[in-house]
């Protein structure tokens, strides 16, 4: 999407001074987004494998009905707690339901509880972060004190209190995880905004009389995009983990919806007789989280040189 804006001929064709300034700001970046991703693909095979794993997971979630002959809810009591076999690759649960089938359908909910809150908290956190950093003064301290308060409460406990207030269910899980995660996003985007605010091109835009909201939307926001991509990718696994913990405690997604965490919660009483009930969805969570973490780290290495690994 950034490609093509760097050719000199295009800069000359655009008469608008503000456009010039924006293009100038992007000229400073030596590479386009596409090229950076290409570099990641070449240098970091782990990130590419992770992206492939994530793609497979998404395809599995979408095509679940095609991929499995079993029903997601249908009971088969003669086959209760069957060990993994050719017919049931990962065994069956206490109702005789195929674990692989439930895993595939459960991935729909688990992936959603990763992606939706990560997206919502990204939008909320970015909006508040840019506003906070750009406006400064009272707005800044108000938003940042609020973020301090949210970050001071241990996230699991905060999630538990919010879930208690809202009650269980998928929608409330989305809302809770958004409320838990926005503050971290806002802090990072704010510091990014503070850096960008003092660059020459923002100064130049201000001098030629561009309105504040326009500066925030057209000059600061686009330059936060690399950081936002990294934050989004890394918030997905943390949301999946928190949701699985909430569901494990029985506070998250409620049946008949099934997330991986809820499957583990239901399987816990059979830990010693049918351990696959817990360990299969547990491994699914681990693989998913690992894939998103690797991809996020890979993206951070190429997109965000300021914020390298610890």
């Amino acid at each position: 999407m950034f490609q093509g804006k760097h050719s000199d001929s295009r800069i000359q064709k655009i008469p608008d001074a503000e456009q010039d300034i924006r293009l100038l700001s992007q000229l400073g970046e030596e590479q386009t987004l596409g090229k950076k991703l290409g570099r990641m693909a070449k240098e970091n095979p782990l990130a590419v494998i992770s992206a492939a794993v994530i793609l497979v997971l998404i395809l599995g979630a979408v095509f679940a009905p095609v991929l499995t002959p079993y029903s997601y809810t249908g009971m088969d009591l003669r086959n209760r707690l069957a060990a993994p076999s050719a017919a049931h690759l990962f065994g069956t649960d206490e109702g005789g339901r195929d674990i692989l089938t439930r895993l595939l359908y459960g991935s729909r909910i688990s992936l959603l509880t990763g992606v939706v809150p990560a997206l919502l908290s990204l939008v909320l956190g970015t909006a508040l972060g840019i506003l906070s950093g750009f406006a400064g003064g009272k707005t800044d301290s108000l938003i940042m004190r609020l973020a301090d308060i949210m970050l001071a409460i241990p996230s699991m406990l905060l999630a538990m209190v919010i879930m208690y207030t809202l009650g269980g269910g998928l929608g409330n899980v989305f809302l809770t995880l958004t409320l838990v995660n926005w503050a971290g996003v806002a802090r990072i985007i704010r510091s990014e905004t503070l850096k960008l605010k003092n660059t020459e091109y923002v100064e130049a835009a201000r001098v030629i009389g561009v309105s504040k909201s326009r500066i925030m939307l057209r000059h600061i926001l686009p330059n936060c995009v690399p950081t936002m991509i990294v934050l989004f990718t890394l918030n997905i696994p943390s949301s999946i983990l928190t949701e699985s913990s909430l569901s494990f405690l029985g506070l998250g997604v409620q049946a008949p919806d099934a997330s991986w965490g809820l499957m583990i919660n239901a399987g816990r009483q059979y830990l010693y007789t049918a351990p696959w009930l817990c360990f299969v969805p547990g491994i699914a969570i681990m693989v998913t989280v690992l894939a998103f973490n690797f991809l996020g780290d890979g993206l951070r290495d190429v997109l965000d040189p300021h914020q390298n690994r610890e």
């Binding site: 696994p237 830990l271 010693y272 351990p275 360990f279 681990m286 690992l290």
Partner: peptide, 22 residues
Amino acid sequence: SLMGVSMPIFMVAMLLQYVFAY
């Protein structure tokens, strides 16, 4: 260590319970 960070804590707990206690 990366695997450790990616494993839900209840998985680690139950795995330990299963292997070392049970």
